[in-house]
Computed example of a mutant assay.
Amino acid sequence: MLTLIKNARVFSPADQGLNDVLMANGSIAAIAPELTLTGSGVDVETIDAEARWLVPGFVDPLAHFNGGGGEGGFHTRTPVMPITDAIEAGIATMVSGLGTDASTRTLEDMLANAHGLSNLGLTTYCYTGSYQYPVVTVTGSIRNDLILIDKMIGIGELAIADKRGSQLTAAELARVASEAKVGGLLSGKAGVTFLHVGDEQSQLSLIEQVTQDFDVDVNQFYPTHINRHTGLVQQGAHLAKQGMMLDLTCSTTPELVAEGEIPAAKCVAKLLDLGVAVSQISISTDANASLPDFDAHGQLRGLKVGRAVSLLETVQECLRDGIPPATVFAVAASNAAKRLKLDHKGTIEIGADADLNLLCPDSFTLTDVWYRGRRMMNNGEILQRGYFQP
């Protein structure tokens, strides 16, 4: 079936004005102000967007498909993510990592969950490794994981500036980054080193040391949780101007905000004010990770779960705060896609995957979602559920 969306204000993410968009075989086949299909025997579903905003399906560079956490004991391990969480957030592409727990959570289980979500329509990728060093892999090496396993596109989220990390040295991080880079080069993938940044005083100093002392470029690193506090934002802005992509975490809690974390939408505006290029900023959900609350001595006081819908909420807050729509949709879709070398994602152009969201221009409510031309939400109703979901 062909699907023709008419009278949509298209953001590619740049504002293209009112256009019609034709989807065929999972891709975008045509974009024009007035599209008319002629000929008999052509099965076409036509949808009038009524001037709603048609935007790229969002790209989430960090989620946790098989859950995570457990910092409060086995009973606090977070649950597996269902596909409905991604659909209700308008996220068409997600990348999963392990995190703190690489003992009871495994890369193999994460890959199985990634394939399961793919079977239901979501585009999925994974990072090899976890918080820890030496790096946990499937094949025995970072390089081989990236070369031999299709869904593996980098290493992450390796922890720095965090008591839960392995306190790795600059030489060890340089070696990991080099292995990831070569694995990416040989497989045609991004080969990024995706870093979890904790709230310790060392901040991003390890990255600075690696790039000063070793032959590793700053843009090899892709750090997340940059919105933890103002000092980290400022140091991140400095490195972003040297070419490093920064990722902001949308999931948060009142406790974390009270301790200085900056909500992602506010941090996007802050980074732009600091002179960081739009192209150097992305946002992620940390979906199904644990969001622990530690005291000054590292003792756990409580934890909550990261939410996929936090990305949509951040998009809506950015728009309400007056950030230009083209900027917002670049931050939520195209920037991560480009950094991760997902060439057919995060954009509305001929030949790109037909991952599309329809938003109301007044309330910014998400009404319709397509994954590679397949309708996943219709007027707010989710059409695809997990195998065991009611």
Results as ranks from 00 to 15, higher is better:
residue 3 T to R: 04
residue 20 D to Q: 00
residue 20 D to S: 02
residue 23 M to V: 14
residue 24 A to V: 06
residue 28 I to A: 00
residue 43 D to K: 13
residue 44 V to K: 03
residue 56 P to V: 00
residue 58 F to H: 07
residue 61 P to S: 00
residue 68 G to N: 12
residue 69 G to D: 10
residue 71 E to H: 12
residue 72 G to Y: 14
residue 84 T to K: 09
residue 90 G to V: 06
residue 90 G to K: 04
residue 92 A to H: 06
residue 92 A to N: 12
residue 94 M to P: 12
residue 95 V to F: 07
residue 97 G to T: 07
residue 98 L to A: 07
residue 103 S to P: 11
residue 105 R to F: 01
residue 105 R to G: 05
residue 109 D to N: 13
residue 109 D to P: 01
residue 110 M to I: 15
residue 112 A to M: 14
residue 116 G to T: 12
residue 121 G to R: 02
residue 123 T to D: 11
residue 126 C to V: 15
residue 131 Y to E: 07
residue 132 Q to Y: 09
residue 132 Q to M: 11
residue 133 Y to R: 05
residue 134 P to R: 09
residue 140 G to W: 03
residue 149 I to S: 09
residue 156 G to D: 06
residue 161 A to D: 02
residue 162 D to R: 02
residue 167 Q to W: 12
residue 169 T to P: 03
residue 170 A to D: 13
residue 170 A to M: 04
residue 173 L to N: 07
residue 175 R to Y: 15
residue 180 A to H: 05
residue 185 L to F: 15
residue 188 G to K: 09
residue 193 T to V: 11
residue 193 T to D: 10
residue 197 V to F: 10
residue 203 Q to N: 15
residue 206 L to E: 11
residue 206 L to T: 10
residue 217 D to P: 02
residue 218 V to P: 02
residue 220 Q to S: 14
residue 233 V to A: 07
residue 238 H to Y: 13
residue 242 Q to W: 10
residue 250 C to D: 09
residue 254 P to C: 09
residue 256 L to R: 13
residue 269 A to R: 03
residue 270 K to V: 06
residue 273 D to L: 13
residue 279 S to N: 15
residue 282 S to C: 14
residue 285 T to Y: 01
residue 288 N to E: 07
residue 291 L to M: 07
residue 292 P to K: 02
residue 295 D to H: 05
residue 303 L to Y: 10
residue 304 K to N: 06
residue 308 A to Y: 10
residue 330 A to M: 06
residue 330 A to L: 00
residue 331 V to P: 09
residue 332 A to G: 09
residue 338 K to A: 04
residue 338 K to R: 10
residue 341 K to E: 08
residue 344 H to P: 03
residue 345 K to H: 13
residue 348 I to T: 04
residue 348 I to D: 01
residue 348 I to Y: 03
residue 356 L to P: 09
residue 368 D to P: 08
residue 369 V to A: 03
residue 373 G to R: 05
residue 374 R to T: 15
residue 375 R to Y: 10
residue 376 M to S: 05
residue 377 M to S: 00
residue 379 N to A: 10
residue 382 I to V: 10
residue 384 Q to V: 15
residue 385 R to T: 15
residue 387 Y to L: 12
residue 389 Q to T: 15
